[in-house]
Design a protein around this nucleic acid. Sequence first.
RNA 1: GCCGGUGUGGCAGAACGGUAAAUGCCUUCGCCUGCAAAGCGAAUGUCUGGGGGUUCGACUCCACCCACCGGCGCCA
Length: 419
Amino acid sequence: MELYSTLSRTIEPLETLHPDRVYLFVCGPTVYDYSHLGHARTYVAFDVLTKYLRWTGKEVFYLQNITDVDDKIINRAAEEGISQPALARKFETEYFRDMLALGIDAVSYYARATTHIPEIIDQVGRLIARGVAYVTETGVYFNVDSFERNGELSGQDGTNRVSRVTDATKQNPLDFSLWKTGEYGEYTWDSPWGRGRPGWHIEDTAISEKYFGQQYDIHGGGLDLIFPHHEAEIAQMESLEGKHPMVRYWLHTGFLTVKGEKMSKSLGNFITIRDALKTWNKEVLRYFILLSHYRSPLQATDEGLANAAKGLGHIRAIAGKDKGPDEEGRKTFIDAMEADLNTPMALAAIQRLAANGDLGALKEYGAILGINFLQETSAPLSVLHEIREELRAKKQFEVADIIREKMVAAGITITDQPL
RNA sequence: GCCGGUGUGGCAGAACGGUAAAUGCCUUCGCCUGCAAAGCGAAUGUCUGGGGGUUCGACUCCACCCACCGGCGCCA
């Protein structure tokens, strides 16, 4: 398989550190609010990547962190008058619920920041011992000047920037926080540098080091994390013992946009996953997301979702009886997936497989994409269909048409047989 | 300002430098149908943001320009 890595800005063949095993880390959510379709886009992409790799026989350890200690959580908990842990647990649960509702179930292990405080403190301590981090009255900071490869991921070397996070005790305004001393409510811990809480970037490297070691295969996340978050992760991890590269494949998903703008909480143009699921089922949402390449921007519109729903319905409608394997169609699908997870092309192959009646492939590949391409029938619906057919046979069209109207309104596809 | 990304038919969105630029939706016509829908068949439609370069040949490579989007130290 080939993947585009932000680090090299090229498509490279996937060569893992251990043959047949893939260590994948994806930045998880900050659990202070409901997740929206932008998050869905990213997590569907990595869900499919993982399922595909597993389908090819790889053993994938997919690790995802849960950021449950953060300014937003502190502020939101204060606003709502509940404890930080209570808020974090609530939205963590909601996150899992949304993910499962979207059929995202490939993650091997979720790791909370707050349950890895010892690992975080240990890593910060080692960075200080290394001489790349220093202690001030306000906390512990990473000295970006100590890291010669600073900026290699984002192409930004820092010379033209000014940090928005001002702290008089920092040696360089661009130095970032590893530990913030102070009292932050429930989420405050003792450390060799005083009571406080972790900085943002350190949880990921502490967690990934614990489960993967200092080097692993793939790190994923949204495009917006490249700088500064992933840049900081590289600096932290590679400064521990100088192992380079921390990860070879940096995968970043493109933004879901609304009227050309990034969907985000701050712009207020977001649609939560659960709201979207009120109108569209999970398979339509997945189909819609996979209809574009994971690195491309994707426009979220009702029209686009409606098209996806129709397209998926079309596949299901034409996939009639099994006509055996369509080798060419299968090859097209696999080639597409191999080529940097080209799901739009893979779905074109699915169209073809459906048209050619390769139901085996539809079922198998549908499991990878998390979409059932075969027509679903349930007992109640079958009964309803039978009743309608009987009415039509007796030429009682008025009643039959009322049933049809109601079914269509409920989003149920009906297919009449000629009388 | 610096860095990064995107720009393909009405819409969404693909294309190892090489036959007619996938696929789906939409539109039109025909078949089918109790009437529709679905399905089937057919048709219209882009010469790929712009003007250059490299090449026998470029959506695809190079430089530049334009437009839009994003990041710039706690956004997936």
